[in-house]
């Protein structure tokens, strides 16, 4: 989060946090303490149960998805035999959380924001999932360690460059980051689904966004860049380098590009990325035969 601030300051030529701790390194810690101590405001007419559940259902899947990420050879919480599918399925719950939070707030901005984010989420879910099918075809398994093993000689980004691009862009859209952050477009929807949230519950939404960003980048590093595979350095370091490179790419895009319009966003998902992901699937089939 601090790094994001540094990058945003650098790209937009403004000053980032400087005064809290050496070079502003403690700024994030200060923010967390402040958020924990903040009052928890809830609109009177809000649906209390759904209002509480919304941020939880958004943040929990993001954290849970880390269970199957291989952080380097032995460092994986659980090497499920359906790890790849698990990683796609669990964060899917986030769509429910966003919709619930937006609806429960009893606020027009939140309501629209919630609707838009879940519509966007499910639209980009399909091309993203189809691209991963291509990877599963080449790897011959849904187990994370097998996917890595299959890339021992050639990382999949060289075999499926189109798939890699589609994955990166659709992921940007799924975790609601600019240029795809319509659901929380400040200039028209105030803050979208989390307009009415404050304090720790608000922090949960941001935890979800950053958690999802790192998890999805790590997943991309494993699927396409060979994760911890690499010469000389230990696997964990390789994994970290690749993941952070993708995270940096995300932040770079965020602070550089303007925002899409809502209908453009849906058109892009269905008429550009879905066909592209089908093409990628065909390419994956051809590559598979070529390798055999």
């Amino acid at each position: 989060m601090l790094v994001e601030r540094w990058i945003s300051a650098r790209i937009q030529l403004r000053v980032g946090p400087r005064h809290t701790g050496p070079y502003g390194t403690l700024q994030t810690v200060a923010d967390i303490v402040k958020l924990l101590m903040k009052e928890d405001v809830r609109p009177v007419q809000a649906d209390a149960m759904a209002f509480r559940l919304g941020p939880m259902l958004t943040a929990v899947p993001a954290v849970m998805s880390f269970a199957v990420i291989p952080f380097g050879a032995p460092l994986i919480m659980r090497d499920l035999n359906v790890g790849v599918l698990y990683f796609l399925a669990v964060p899917g719950v986030t769509a429910v959380g966003l919709l619930l939070a937006g609806w429960a707030s009893y606020d027009n901005y939140s309501f629209l924001g919630g609707l838009r984010s879940s519509a966007q989420f499910i639209s980009y879910e399909i091309p993203r999932t189809l691209v991963v099918v291509g990877v599963a075809m080449l790897a011959g398994s849904l187990r994370m360690s097998d996917v890595l093993e299959a890339q021992r000689s050639v990382p999949f980004v060289l075999l499926l460059p189109l798939g890699f691009v589609v994955y990166i862009v659709t992921t940007l859209a799924e975790i609601n980051r600019t240029p795809f952050d319509i659901p929380e477009a400040e200039s028209e929807l105030v803050a979208g689904y989390h307009t009415e949230y404050s304090g720790f519950r608000w922090a949960l939404f941001f935890l979800a966004e950053y958690g999802a960003l790192f998890a999805a980048s790590g997943f991309a590093a494993v699927l396409f860049l060979g994760g911890g595979n690499g010469p000389l350095l230990p696997p964990f370091v390789w994994f970290l380098i690749k993941t952070l490179a993708i995270v940096f790419l995300n932040m770079w895009v965020r602070w550089t590009l303007p925002r899409f319009r809502s209908d453009q966003l849906m058109r892009l998902a269905w008429k550009v990325f879905l066909p592209l992901s089908l093409v990628n699937l065909v390419l994956a089939g051809l590559v598979l035969q070529a390798v055999n």
């Binding site: 599918l85 189809l130 099918v133 291509g134 599963a136 075809m137 080449l138 790897a139 011959g140 398994s141 849904l142 699937l281 089939g285 598979l288 055999n292």
Partner: peptide, 9 residues
């Protein structure tokens, strides 16, 4: 597709 993808090879 996920059901068949891993064994396709």
């Amino acid at each position: 597709l996920f059901a068949i993808a891993p064994v396709l090879r």
